[in-house]
Amino acid sequence: MIYQIQVLVRSFDYLLIGALMTLKITAVSVLMGLVIGTFVGMGRLSKSRAFSWPASVYVEFLRGTPLLVQIFLIYYGLPSLGLNLKAFPAAVIALGINSGAYVAEIVRAGIQSVPKGQYEAARSLGMTHGQAMRYIILPQAFRNILPALGNEFIALLKDSSLVSVIGITELMKSGQIVISRTFASFSIYGGVALIYFGMTFTLSRIVRYVEKRLAIA
């Protein structure tokens, strides 16, 4: 037991470097997921089938297949089509488009949560559909869906551990490397879990803080 703790203490810096990579991957994927999700979410609500149908297929397919399979498909599958991606871009793209599907559903619900009169008032002032969305609907929608988005970001941070399988040395992989040299499985996985928890807990506090800041008095 003492040995286990010693290993954890000695390799803690190394694990934190992995955690930094986890944060980096999560941050980029979150941004990608937000952008994709916003457009796909709007697409799902479009009256035009040319938008709503592809958006539905996107959401259904990405939610209906395992993230691990999607990661393999992008990192190992695309090269056979002549498209070689390095591990980091492959990881971020896989996580980003996957998260985009979940964010799309959240955004869709958010847009639907804004009363119809808001859109009508905006249009009655001469705004285009795009202007009404950008200045009136989406700002209100995002305020309403902030808690749900927070959950999604936390899920994404945890799911990023899956990209350890394509050789990215993020937190999970860092832990595995230490264990392969020291066999201190319990303390290292325990330490890894604690670091994940520290990150998700902080993230959820940040989301709650932003939520409070944005609430109208």
């Binding site: 009363p115 009169g117 808001q118 009508e120 008032a121 905006a122 249009r123 009655s124 002032l125 001469g126 009136i136 700002p139 209100q140 305020r143 109208i216």
Partner: peptide
């Protein structure tokens, strides 16, 4: 619509 103003029963002011 820029030439025709509309006032609604439920005001529809932008709350944000």
């Amino acid at each position: 619509r820029t030439k025709i103003g509309m006032v609604f029963q439920h005001f529809n002011l932008f709350p944000h």
